[in-house]
Each structure stands twice: as structure tokens, then as C-alpha cells.
Design a protein around this nucleic acid. Structure first.
Lengths: 333, 333
DNA sequence: ATGAAAGCGCTAACAC
DNA sequence: GTGTTAGCGCTTTCAT
């Protein structure tokens, strides 16, 4: 194994000089920097992470806790994870992967062992049991999602209230008067994951302002549930022409049901989805949609974690503005 | 921070005794073990990972490299990742996540820095550019997937040849004479990911033995491509009654097209898919299928990595036997 | 069955 | 601008 001492010897300098060339924490003459650098290259030297962590009290690792079972759509989770890892590398950090079932104990273990310098938590619930541990360990941490009490915490998420409002606005602008929000299944609401409620609240409020009449229906991701939901909506309010869908799994059944019912989209009904662009684009007709900004959330979480590590306070919630992309599934009436 | 020295002092023993209580590498009297253990509990001690790595030359970390863009279905990737992390924890290992785009350099960096003791690579291509690095660093490594030259390497994968054969057998057993294999898109075959070819080979060989006539057609995941593929197949061989689908995205369009063509499943046509159980079960009718054993692959990879770390040789390929689950989409004719 | 002590490879004062 | 050196917290001989 090639050590810093080997490099120092080869370059004819002291160990500290090599260390400082690497860290840039003090000025080095061009000539020695070169000698050191070429010794590093020649020998193929990479600093020993453990030694570095021990001496500097910094691991250069971010711990990312991903949900095992989640309300999120799996591809979105993967996109966030990918964004986190990619962004972390740009800060010279590696990413340690923890599963949600490790819970608070897992976080405590990671922090106490000095394996990671900061924590990023995905799929945060309104009353998340990991949050007390976060306050206890007082380690830099970022939540992807919004708990009910975010005092003293750093959070990042899509602004779901604004998303709901944007959807209501879009349908109102198009002249729709009776609209329906087809949401996630009851479990999601019961588990208090937050985003579903926030969307509903934002939608309801704006709908009232725009004088829309609206109903909200939770829905399973199955064909049967979608059929039942749709039947009930049309039964209660046959004049419904606008739909907002916040449930990836329900989109396909719903579109196919509307077609079967002879309710063509977008001529007779407008459909708006909160889903990844990929899903919106492979549906026919392509859906007007608001995507979860997975990439931005992942990158943002890393940025916030790094800011905390450099001593800045990032307390508060970063709510990313929704971006509504108009495609083929919504039209004026 | 609580250190081993703190624990030793609290327990009234030496540092080495505490260390040995933790590692179990020498016998300790019951009484001291208890004293040490309660000191650990009282103080909330967790060993410092960096110090441990430095002194023992072992990080207790497995590096897992996941593909960014992959031919695999994203939920399957997630399932493998989850299985790896869960299994790793049972061996007291943490998992460091690397993205495929870090390539060989990333692996070299991880190994040289001592950040991980072993490597697990997903989505291995036939002529994977990371393989030379694997041979160069001579670190314990496991490939999930099968490269063309696996000499000296440890691999684990589904036995796709046996999978193809099992599909051919099932259709032959049901009395089908003309069958079609609807595969992944051309890109996958061109990129030489291996599994597609192996399925084809296994299917072709067994089909010949069972005197089946068969055609193979790559297919995109779009409705249009599925329609074109199906039209061509029925055009060339109208007598085709059995289908094997190895392309998650093509399943839904295909089923809906068969319905439109009045070819009911399973009465007139049998359809067999190589896809996750979840997909097979939410299709209507539920599909007879062979799933990718993601859980087994992840766990197996960890097991193999740990075996290598304990000095055992695991060179060779572990090919997991396919498990064909009969559901509603295949029937005798 | 337990202790003492020498490092593991690096960082960061402290010197000059 | 560079060198010297004292640790960081742990494992592991070598003693006893």
C-alpha cells in the first residue's frame, strides 16, 4: 500500500507538505507542488480514508437513508438517490446507504461511529420517529419531505400546496367548473405522509378562490378501485370535467376507463397528473403534469448538508416551486 | 465523544480487554465481560469506524456500484440494492453506494483508500470495462450478471438459459407448436448485456428439442412497437399461439393488443413473461411468469463477498435456477 | 485471563 | 514556504 510517507520520500519533502498539497490549506511553492503531484501520480497514491477520518475527525461521507417500503414511486426514489450520489461526489463525498428499517438506532450508530458527517433522510413522515434522534445527536441533517414539526430542522421538498393550487388554477383557467382530485390510497393519508394532505389543502383553497366545485377521492392503484372511484364521482357530480391525479398507479386504469366511458381526453375531460415526466409522456394522450423534482431535491439536500458542514445555518424548509408542463390531456371547454 | 479508553477506565480494565470483549478474539472471564459491557451500555459507546479501519486494515464496508442508466427494470434494481444492504447489515457491514458512471476509476479509488473491503457490481455487461480494474486491484468482488470472460471472477445471476428452456418446455407441455419470443429492444442486444442472448439461446435450443417452431423479435417498450411486432409475427406465422415476453414495458401494450385483435388469453393464446411477480400479478389476466430473483441475487452477492473476505475462494458463476409460476395467462390448446 | 505499548496513516499545531 | 511532531482511537503483538 502506498502511504503519504512514501510520497513524501519520493518527492523529497516532509509528510506535512504532502498533506498540505492535498488539502490546499497552506501555500506551497509551484515547484514543490509539482514534485509532490508527480510523486502522487507515479506511485498511484490515494489517501487512506480511515486514517484521514481519524486525524481530521471528518469522514467525508454522507449517510442516505432510503425507505424500504414507501409511498413514493420507486423510479422517483432511484432518481433522488442517483442525484444525491452524483452531487455528493462533486463535493468529494461518498454516500453510505442505510435502509429505513434501521431507524433511529441506525442513525445513532452511524453518527457515533463517525462513519458519516451528515445525514440525509428520505420519505419523512409527519410524525417521524427518527426526528427525536436527529435532535439528540445534533449532527448536520437534511430531511427530504416535511414533518409536522420542523423546528430547528432543515427540510427540502416540492411545494405540494403550491402544486395543488397550480392544478386548480390551470383547470379554472381552462374554464372547468367541476373538478375532482383523485388521490393516493387511504393508507397514505392515514400514515400522514404529509404531501398528500398538503396537495389537498392547496388545491381546496385555490379551488374555493376560483369558485370551482370539487370533490376529493382517495384511490387504490388497481383497475377496480379506479373504476369504483370514477363511477362514484360521475354519480355524485355528472358535470365533473376536470381531474387531478396524484397516484401513478391509478393513471393508466383511469385513462383507459375514461376512454371506455366514451369521455374523450382532452375534448370532454381534462386530466392533470402529479407524476414523473416519463409517466406523463408514455401515456396516450400525453399528460399535462407536475413532476416531483427528484433531481433538484437530491442535489439540494446535498448542498444543504454541505452548507451545514461548513458551519452555515440552513434551518428551515426549502419548498421547490412546482413546474406545470402542459401537454395533450388538458384543454379549454 | 466516548472512546474505548473511556470505557476501559469506567470498567476498571485495560484498553485491550475492552477491544477483546468487542471482538471476541480471546477469552474473557464472565465477570469482566459484564463490567465492560455495562460500561459500554452506560456510556453509549460505539467504536470509531475510522480508527478501527486504520488499526485493523478492514473497513467493514462493501461498495455497491449501481447502474445509472440500465437495461434492468428500476424496481428490480431497488430490490437488489435493498437486499444487499439488508444482508450486509447481518454481517455487520455497511454499504457504500457508487454510481456506474464512476467506472473503473471509482473502483480503484475506493479500494486504494481502504474505504471498502469488497466490491459488488450490478448490471455487468458482456465486455465490461470495469473488469480489467477488478483483476488489477485483486480485491474481493462479486458481479451481479455474467460477463463473456468470467475467468477468475465471482458472478451471480439468474440462469437465463435455463429460464428460456423452462419457458419453451412450459409452452410445449401445453401443446403449443408455434411460439414467439418477444425480447428487449435492439439496443439491449447491441449493448451485449448477456441476459437477453442467454435467454434466446436457451429458448432456441429447447424449442428445437421439443420440435417447436419459433420466431424471435426484439421490441421497444412502446405501444407502436408492440403493435408492429405483433402484426409481423401474425403475418409471418398466423399459427403462432404461444408467447414469451422478456420486456416489462412491452407487456401491457401486448396484452391490450391481443385483446383488441380478439385473441383471448389464455383461451386462444398463451402468454408467459419474464418479469417481477408484482407486474405479473397486476396484469389482467395474471401472467404465468419467471421473476428475476432480485432478493436472492443481492443476498447471494453479499454472501459471496463475505466468503472471499474470510479467505475462501468463490471463483465461478452461481446461476440461480428459474422458478416458473403458473397463473392465468397460459393454458393447454 | 489480563495489561502495556507499539504502531496503523494522516492532520494540524508549533516551530523556523 | 517548509519541517517536526504529537496525537486521533483502535488492534494486536508481546509479556506476564
Amino acid at each position: 500500500m502506498v502511504t503519504l510517507a512514501d510520497v513524501a520520500r519520493a518527492a523529497g519533502v516532509s509528510a506535512s507538505t504532502v498533506s498540505y498539497v492535498l488539502s490546499g490549506k497552506r501555500s506551497i511553492s509551484g515547484i514543490t507542488r509539482e514534485r509532490v503531484q508527480s510523486a502522487i501520480d507515479d506511485l498511484g497514491y490515494t489517501p487512506h480514508a480511515g486514517a484521514r477520518a481519524l486525524a481530521s475527525n471528518r469522514s467525508n461521507v454522507l449517510a442516505l437513508m432510503v425507505p424500504l417500503r414507501s409511498d413514493m414511486f420507486v423510479p422517483v426514489i432511484m432518481e433522488i438517490v442517483t442525484a444525491v450520489v452524483t452531487a455528493a461526489r462533486e463535493f468529494d463525498q461518498d454516500v453510505l446507504l442505510l435502509t429505513g428499517d434501521e431507524g433511529g438506532d441506525g442513525l445513532r450508530r452511524i453518527v457515533r461511529s463517525g462513519r458519516a458527517d451528515a445525514l440525509i433522510l428520505m420519505d419523512v413522515e409527519l410524525d417521524d420517529r427518527r426526528i427525536p434522534v436527529l435532535r439528540e445527536v445534533a449532527t448536520p441533517a437534511v430531511l427530504i419531505g416535511l414533518p409536522s414539526d420542523s423546528t430547528g430542522l432543515t427540510c427540502i421538498d416540492l411545494d405540494f400546496a403550491a402544486t395543488g393550487a397550480a392544478c386548480a388554477d390551470h383547470l379554472a383557467d381552462l374554464g372547468h367548473r367541476d373538478v375532482a382530485l383523485i388521490g393516493e390510497n387511504q393508507d397514505v393519508y392515514r400514515r400522514h405522509t404529509g404531501f398528500a394532505e398538503r396537495t389537498l389543502t392547496g388545491f381546496r383553497k385555490r379551488a374555493a378562490q376560483r369558485r370551482l366545485r370539487f370533490v376529493h377521492r382517495p384511490c387504490e392503484g388497481t383497475y377496480e378501485s379506479a373504476a369504483g372511484t370514477l363511477t362514484r364521482i360521475f354519480g355524485e357530480r355528472p358535470s365533473t370535467t376536470g381531474f387531478v391525479v396524484q397516484n401513478e398507479a391509478a393513471i393508466a386504469p383511469l385513462m383507459s376507463l375514461l376512454r371506455q366511458l366514451g369521455r374523450s381526453v382532452p375534448e370532454e375531460n381534462s386530466v392533470l397528473a402529479i407524476c414523473p415526466d416519463q409517466v406523463a409522456q408514455q401515456t396516450s394522450p400525453q399528460l399535462t403534469s407536475v413532476p416531483i423534482p427528484a433531481e433538484e431535491m437530491g442535489r439540494g439536500a446535498v448542498r444543504l448538508a454541505m452548507a451545514q458542514l461548513s458551519g452555515q445555518s440552513t434551518v428551515g424548509s426549502t419548498l421547490l416551486p412546482p413546474k406545470l408542463t402542459i401537454r395533450e390531456s388538458t384543454a379549454a371547454r
